[in-house]
């Protein structure tokens, strides 16, 4: 049996918001360590890897591994009904046909209970070994979201170029070009505002802008985002959770 209670429903709301536009159906795999999701978008360009660690829950119990096949659009309709500050509890039997979603306000004078039908989904698990990256950038997630939105207006591709001194985001479109250059810096008072660039080898990669625009829907999960890049390899975009992470692996574009 699964019983997981969040101190606030806001975490689950943000997670669903972050992934629902990339994937529609996915398995939530529940183990004693927490909840994981691995899913790939329909075009097979973007892979999502989510871990909501046991410590993200106020109370968590999962005796046996349980798979919840969830339609995220339906789940989102229900999860939106809770107030962000409500307790959120997920309950499922060992071989469940549905999952119970319970919201309780903190004064305990209102309890809302919903049941979501589960689906039997094919799981197609990809093996992601520890990758070696040539460059790692950590920056404020809101700044990365703005750069993505701004440059996406010019082109369907977004180029990321990392040199020793800086990182350049660049787009080249029909009516013009644009780029944003960031240098590393440390903000002692607000560490989350810092920009950290670690580079072992220079990087020049191009990605589909629409996929990055989907990735930045994770912005509300974390003050900062970490971008890991390697030549001719998928990029990793990571938003840290209180215990766990939401990772996006994005396949690059190459010259024909």
């Amino acid at each position: 049996m699964l019983e997981g209670k969040f101190e606030e429903s806001s975490l689950m709301k943000k997670v669903v918001d972050a992934i629902k536009d990339s994937v529609k159906l996915c398995n939530f795999n529940c183990t004693e360590h927490g909840v994981t999701v691995q899913a790939v978008d329909d075009s097979r360009v973007l892979l999502i890897s989510l871990l909501i660690g046991e410590a993200s829950f106020e109370e968590y119990r999962c005796d046996r591994n349980i798979t919840l096949g969830i339609d995220l659009e339906s789940f989102n309709k229900i999860i939106k009904n809770g107030n962000s500050s409500d307790f959120l509890t997920l309950i499922a039997e060992d071989s469940p046909d549905n999952v119970l979603i319970i919201f309780e306000d903190k004064k305990k004078d209102r309890v809302s209970e919903y049941s979501l039908k589960l689906m039997d989904l094919d799981s197609d698990f990809l093996q992601i070994d520890d990758m070696e990256f040539d460059a790692t950038i950590t920056m404020p997630s809101s700044e990365f979201a703005k750069i993505t939105r701004d440059l996406k207006t010019l082109s369907e591709s977004l180029q990321i170029i990392v040199t020793k001194e800086n990182v350049k985001f660049s787009s080249d479109g029909d009516f013009g070009t644009g780029n944003v250059v960031l240098k590393g810096f440390v903000d002692m008072d607000k560490p989350d505002e810092s920009i950290k660039i670690d580079m072992a080898r220079p990087i020049n990669l191009t990605f589909g802008a629409k996929y990055i625009a989907d990735i930045v829907k994770g912005t509300s999960l974390s003050e900062s985002v970490t971008i890991k890049l390697a030549d001719k390899s998928p990029a990793l975009f990571e938003y840290k959770l209180p215990s766990g992470f939401l990772r996006f692996y994005l396949a690059p574009k190459f010259d024909e």
């Binding site: 790939v40 360009v45 973007l46 698990f125 990809l126 093996q127 692996y249 396949a251």
Partner: peptide, 14 residues
């Protein structure tokens, strides 16, 4: 013109 790759080209199925 750049060609989009897919994630399957990099990560094998388990």
């Amino acid at each position: 013109k750049k060609q989009q790759t897919t994630i399957n080209e990099f990560f094998p199925r388990d």
